Simulated assay, not measured.
Amino acid sequence: MTFSMTGFAALEHPLENATLVLELRAVNSRYLDVHFKLDDALRAFEPAIRELIAANLSRGKIECKVNLMQRKQTNLAPQLDEPLMQQLAAMQTKALAFFPQSRQLSVADILRWPGVVLNDDLSQTSLIVDVKKLVQLGLQDLSASRAREGEKLKALILDRLAQIETLVAKVKPLLPALNKEYQAKLENKLQETLKTIDQDRIAQELVLFAQRIDVDEELSRLTAHVSEVKRILNSDAPAGKRLDFLMQELNREANTLGSKSVSVLTTQVSMELKVLIEQMREQIQNVE
């Protein structure tokens, strides 16, 4: 299946006295690039969330936003983490020994310090389980979104491939006649210009030139590359980088076809091929 690197997912997960809110956004990128916007109470879970994302996605710039929103007030008085406050006091004492003119921590500073105010209703052990479950569901929704977008990209690419095959099928049967016609024109011009030259030598040069302008090999490689693109689109492995390489190869063959062209028809076909290849290349930049 072909996956796009663009997608979006948004989910909520209710807790006893709060709600977890998740947003996942994905855009195209050469590598997997994950950025987090986490609630202060959830920052410790970043490594676990990153591991989940890396296990499910291989490319793309991912923005993961997780918020913890309190839904109602609890009747229990807030608790303070006394060991953490002791550590803060010890650190402040050491710091003031080096910087005696510095301002001491206020009560407001201490209460705002992450982890100082405890919430008995939200156990860290159960919270990480809920967060991981929510992220996993969000990744499933994101993958479904990327799959839908990927199918649209696949359909567009297959349409361009069909047009390329039509162009190749149109020009390939005409090549022998076109080359023969051009060879006859060239022979006439040479005979008019070089009437004293050996006719056998002219015939040999014409055969060599005909070989240089023969594009049958380029058309065969174009057909082979088209078949390989179709095979990759139907595989389950990430396809973006391989498809990008094949677009370069297709463009190379189209350029060679244009440089060897001896007729207006093959020149037009070369230009149309390059337009179609460029359209595919632009879309493939968004394929995972």
Rank of each mutant, 00 (worst) to 15 (best):
T2L: 04
T6V: 05
A9I: 14
A10W: 08
A10V: 11
E12K: 13
E12V: 15
P14F: 02
A18K: 03
A18I: 02
A26Y: 02
Y31N: 15
Y31F: 15
F36R: 09
F36Y: 08
K37N: 11
L42C: 08
R43I: 06
E46N: 12
P47Q: 09
A48F: 02
I49V: 15
I49G: 09
I53L: 15
R59A: 06
G60Y: 03
I62C: 07
V66G: 11
Q70P: 15
R71H: 00
T74F: 03
L76V: 09
L76M: 04
A77T: 10
A77L: 10
M85A: 06
Q87Y: 06
L88Q: 00
L96R: 13
Q101L: 12
Q101Y: 06
L105C: 10
A108V: 12
I110H: 01
L111R: 02
R112K: 14
V117M: 06
N119G: 07
L122I: 14
L122Q: 09
S123F: 10
Q124A: 15
I128N: 10
L134I: 07
Q140E: 12
S143T: 02
R146P: 03
R148T: 13
E149I: 08
E149A: 08
R160N: 15
R160Q: 13
L161W: 00
A162C: 08
A162L: 11
T166F: 01
A169F: 04
K170T: 04
K172Y: 07
P173V: 07
A177F: 01
A184G: 07
N188M: 11
L194Y: 14
K195S: 13
D198V: 01
A203S: 09
L208H: 03
A210D: 02
R212I: 00
I213Q: 04
D214W: 01
D214P: 02
I232D: 03
R242C: 04
D244N: 14
L246Y: 05
L250Q: 05
R252W: 00
E253P: 09
N255L: 09
T256L: 04
L257C: 07
G258S: 05
S259M: 14
T266L: 11
T267R: 06
R281Y: 03
E282N: 04
E288F: 03
